[in-house]
Amino acid sequence: MPVLYSRHGDIAILTLNDAQRRNALSRASVAQLLDLIARSRAEKARAIVIAANGPVFCAGANIDDLKAGWMSGVADPTDPALLFRALAEEKRPTIAAVQGGALGGGFELTLSCDLVVMGAESYFALPELGHGVIPNTALARLHRVVGTRRAAELILTRRRLSAAQAVEWGLANRIVLTADVLSSAIDLALSIVQSAPPGAIAAAKHNLAHHGETDWARVLSSPEDVPPTEWREGLRAFDERREPSYDQFWQDR
């Protein structure tokens, strides 16, 4: 199963479980995560923790699924942006428990959660432009956390941001030992839901989001802004484990 479901009392734990593929978001994992969010709601879980098995939290979007439709702009019920929207609009607290790298869509997954706990050696990165694609959800949400200049730096340079820097920039709430990431995230969730009622939590989240609304229609359509020749070359180079050749596109400008 690409995602595991468990409970710790009132907390639902959704664990990415495809370590062989570095927990990349695929059609199967996105669909299952959406189903499990609904299941947790039906079971009256008070909060959701997103965790992962293996050394990498999430390496981003599955390349095969990017090539097979996610970049086309065609409506797809397994588009990762729909998962990110579901988490961002969830009425209950959502917390990401990050160990290892959170790259691309993995970083965007954390941007869609309310709070983030990181292992000391974990990091964020947005490598999309190097592959000829764009981090469409990060383009909509990252600058509201870190400001436009820092968002532009992370997106354009694709550099890694350490856990310490992530806390400094407001992208994570706390750093703990890797072995304690999940338990710390659960404790954080419990500290919220055991001392506040659901309606007040939902109202606080709703109004916080209202004052910085995300244009999800634009997020879903924005991959169409990238010339297909560019992303096909970038993703083909990734598959072939070579450097992409973008000079041709600069010459055509």
Rank of each mutant, 00 (worst) to 15 (best):
residue 8 H to T: 13
residue 14 L to W: 00
residue 15 T to V: 03
residue 16 L to E: 03
residue 17 N to S: 12
residue 18 D to C: 06
residue 24 A to C: 08
residue 27 R to P: 05
residue 35 D to N: 14
residue 35 D to T: 15
residue 39 R to Y: 03
residue 40 S to R: 01
residue 42 A to L: 12
residue 45 A to H: 11
residue 54 G to Q: 02
residue 54 G to N: 01
residue 56 V to S: 04
residue 56 V to T: 15
residue 58 C to L: 07
residue 59 A to F: 08
residue 61 A to D: 15
residue 61 A to F: 15
residue 63 I to A: 14
residue 64 D to Y: 12
residue 66 L to D: 01
residue 68 A to P: 10
residue 71 M to H: 10
residue 72 S to L: 05
residue 72 S to Y: 00
residue 73 G to K: 11
residue 73 G to A: 04
residue 75 A to I: 11
residue 76 D to N: 12
residue 76 D to A: 04
residue 76 D to I: 02
residue 77 P to G: 07
residue 77 P to W: 07
residue 77 P to C: 10
residue 78 T to I: 06
residue 83 L to Q: 01
residue 83 L to A: 06
residue 88 A to F: 09
residue 90 E to L: 10
residue 92 R to N: 02
residue 93 P to Y: 04
residue 93 P to E: 05
residue 97 A to T: 05
residue 98 V to H: 02
residue 98 V to L: 04
residue 103 L to G: 09
residue 103 L to W: 05
residue 103 L to F: 10
residue 105 G to K: 03
residue 106 G to N: 02
residue 106 G to L: 06
residue 107 F to M: 12
residue 110 T to M: 00
residue 110 T to Y: 00
residue 112 S to G: 06
residue 113 C to L: 01
residue 115 L to K: 14
residue 116 V to I: 04
residue 124 F to I: 03
residue 125 A to K: 02
residue 125 A to E: 06
residue 127 P to T: 08
residue 127 P to F: 03
residue 131 H to G: 10
residue 133 V to E: 09
residue 133 V to D: 09
residue 133 V to K: 05
residue 134 I to C: 07
residue 135 P to R: 00
residue 136 N to S: 08
residue 141 R to E: 13
residue 141 R to G: 08
residue 142 L to T: 00
residue 144 R to I: 01
residue 145 V to G: 07
residue 146 V to T: 08
residue 147 G to A: 02
residue 151 A to R: 06
residue 152 A to C: 12
residue 154 L to F: 08
residue 158 R to G: 05
residue 159 R to Q: 13
residue 160 R to Y: 08
residue 162 S to P: 04
residue 164 A to V: 06
residue 166 A to C: 05
residue 166 A to Y: 02
residue 172 A to C: 03
residue 174 R to W: 12
residue 177 L to N: 14
residue 179 A to D: 07
residue 183 S to Y: 09
residue 184 S to K: 06
residue 189 A to E: 07
residue 189 A to D: 10
residue 192 I to W: 08
residue 194 Q to P: 07
residue 195 S to L: 11
residue 197 P to F: 09
residue 197 P to K: 05
residue 199 G to R: 11
residue 200 A to V: 13
residue 202 A to E: 07
residue 204 A to M: 14
residue 208 L to S: 15
residue 213 E to K: 11
residue 218 R to L: 13
residue 218 R to M: 12
residue 219 V to K: 01
residue 222 S to A: 15
residue 223 P to E: 08
residue 223 P to V: 02
residue 224 E to T: 15
residue 229 T to P: 11
residue 232 R to E: 12
residue 235 L to F: 05
residue 237 A to N: 01
residue 238 F to N: 13
residue 238 F to C: 11
residue 241 R to A: 13
residue 241 R to W: 10
residue 241 R to I: 08
residue 244 P to M: 07
residue 244 P to Y: 04
residue 245 S to G: 13
residue 245 S to Y: 10
